[in-house]
Nucleic acid binder design. Structure first.
Length: 454
RNA sequence: GCUGAGGUAGCCUAGCCCGGGAAGGCGCCAGCCUUGAAAGCUGGUGGCGGUUCCGCCACGGGAGUUCAAAUCUCCCCCUCAGCGCCA
């Protein structure tokens, strides 16, 4: 979000940013014209209030000295009150509409962002090949998961609904081991751990940009109207809403593990198999608060930090520099980290590394000051997944398969798994095998949409 | 959830009963003094708009009464204490 003063001063920059994103630049002009209306109403109200205050002073003076009040003043004041109320109510209606429109203006892309219209124009800026040999004829994660009775979408659907899943036995253990591994990694590299609320109020959702535009993407809980967080970014960034940080506090590096909840409205029917797109998942998230001049250094640091997770797990991945047409609403620049899933023959986005510049700081009123007597101004916020779990689990199930149908535990988390080298099958299955209901009649070898190999 | 007390500038506090220009202290900034610093003294120190100066807004948020609201009325939020409930 941009302050109205910035829109007045830098309308051309904003229009250019909208055009680069393939959006209509006239949104800026609509705001400017509402702003002119608003200021005209404000100026008139201001003049009338000045007149009112002077008449009121005369009446107050008369009351004090017990001289008779001027009836003309009283009559005029009645008129003024009505006219001022009128102007104030049109003024605040205009304020509301202006704010609404400001909240919907996307962040201007940074000058280094490649121009383009969609995902095809994103630029690969890094690629990592695993040191261990690629598996021979790998199968998709859900097949392996079902075979070992470790992955159970059927009971997830029964308990909660389509798009929910259950991990059993060693796969649940693996997930927790990965969470602990990532938290410890980031903590040891200077990130302070924080365990935030995962229900948040609407102000927080506006603060980080989920509202008002993306209300349909999140779950709202009745009867209190709180929201289940779609990412830890929301509660963690909002920790400092309406606060002023000192330069000495910056950069502030935070790491948080939370569940995340996404309605994925509009994506029904896609990716029904497996756990690449689900309504509830776990994620380790990194958040940074920085000074405006250092946020692009912080962006590279966060990218390195997220990539380090994948390197240590020895998983093949590539890093994409998102183009103007694919860049999220909030971000001035964004890298996506994509893991290669050889069983499904596709790239899986496991991390978005974004610099929001002042987009969130203005919405959430998070400020900093250079020294104690300096005027506070908006700081810059950034975040990176470090990383999202279901897709990481997918990549492990597909990259760590062995020829005899087992799945190896990545060496980096073996200690967290009591030194265990392979995932053991889950022996308890009830009357039927886990996860075999809906999909059991399908072919046992159905790779997803193929893309290029790493 | 109930009862009570509260919310005033970065922080602390007066004003509220009984309506009429938001006072004071701390902190911070500048100046004076000083070799330097402290102390002391003087001034400044919320936001917006036009800019020597002035105007408007601002007392948790909103609505109302009134010529006029920090002050009276109503609704909501938050903090603290006691009680209740509770993993």
């Amino acid at each position: 979000m941009y302050p109205i003063s910035y829109v007045r001063e830098s309308a051309d920059t904003l229009r250019a940013g909208l055009v680069a994103r393939g959006r209509d630049p006239s949104a800026v002009d609509r705001i400017l014209s509402l702003d002119r209306e608003r200021r005209a109403a404000g100026d008139e109200a201001n003049r009338l209030r000045a007149e009112r205050n002077r008449a009121t002073e005369r009446l107050a003076e008369a009351a004090k000295s017990s001289t008779p009040p001027d009836d003309a003043d009283r009559a005029r004041l009645g008129e003024l009150r009505d006219r001022i109320r009128e102007l104030e109510s049109t003024g605040s209606a205009l304020d509301g509409e202006i704010r609404e429109r400001l909240l919907l203006l996307p962040q201007t892309p940074h000058s280094s962002v490649p121009h383009g219209t969609g995902a095809a124009d994103n630029i690969e800026v890094a690629r990592f090949e695993a040191k261990r040999p690629a598996p021979n004829a790998p199968r998709p994660h859900f097949e392996v998961g079902h075979e070992l009775n470790l992955l159970d979408e059927e009971r997830g659907a029964k308990v909660a609904g389509e798009g929910f899943f259950v991990l059993w036995g060693d796969l649940a253990r693996l997930e927790h081991a990965l969470i602990r591994f990532m938290r410890e990694l980031h903590r040891s590299r200077g990130y302070v751990e924080v365990s935030p609320p995962i229900l948040v109020n609407s102000e927080s959702m506006v603060g980080t940009g989920q509202l008002p535009k993306f209300a349909d993407d999140s779950y709202q809980v009745s009867p209190d109207g709180l929201w289940l967080v779609p990412t830890a970014e929301v509660p963690v960034t909002n920790l400092f809403r309406d606060e002023v940080l000192l330069a000495d506090d910056l950069p502030l590096r935070l790491v948080a593990y939370t569940p995340c909840f996404r309605r994925e409205a509009g994506s029904h029917g896609v990716e029904t198999r497996g756990i690449a797109r689900v309504h509830q998942f776990d994620k380790v998230e990194l958040v940074q608060f920085t000074t405006p001049e250092s946020s692009y250094d912080a962006l590279e640091e966060l990218r390195t930090e997220a990539e380090e997770v994948l390197r240590r797990l020895d998983l093949p991945f590539r890093t994409m520099d998102l183009c103007t047409g694919d860049l999220g609403e909030k971000a001035a620049k964004c890298y996506d980290l994509e893991l290669w899933a050889p069983g499904s023959q596709r790239w899986l986005e496991v991390s978005s590394v974004s610099n929001f510049e002042a987009y969130q700081a203005v919405r959430a009123n998070i400020r900093w000051r250079r020294h104690q007597s300096a005027k506070p101004g908006p700081l810059h916020t950034l975040n990176a997944s470090g990383v999202a779990l279901p897709r990481l689990v997918i990549a492990i199930l597909e990259n760590y398969q062995t020829a005899d149908g087992r799945v190896e535990v990545p060496p980096a988390v073996r200690d967290e798994m009591g030194g265990q080298k392979f995932l053991e099958p889950n022996p308890f299955v009830g009357e039927k095998e886990l996860g075999r209901g809906r999909h059991s009649r399908r072919s046992s070898r159905t790779p997803g949409p193929a893309t290029e190999k790493p």
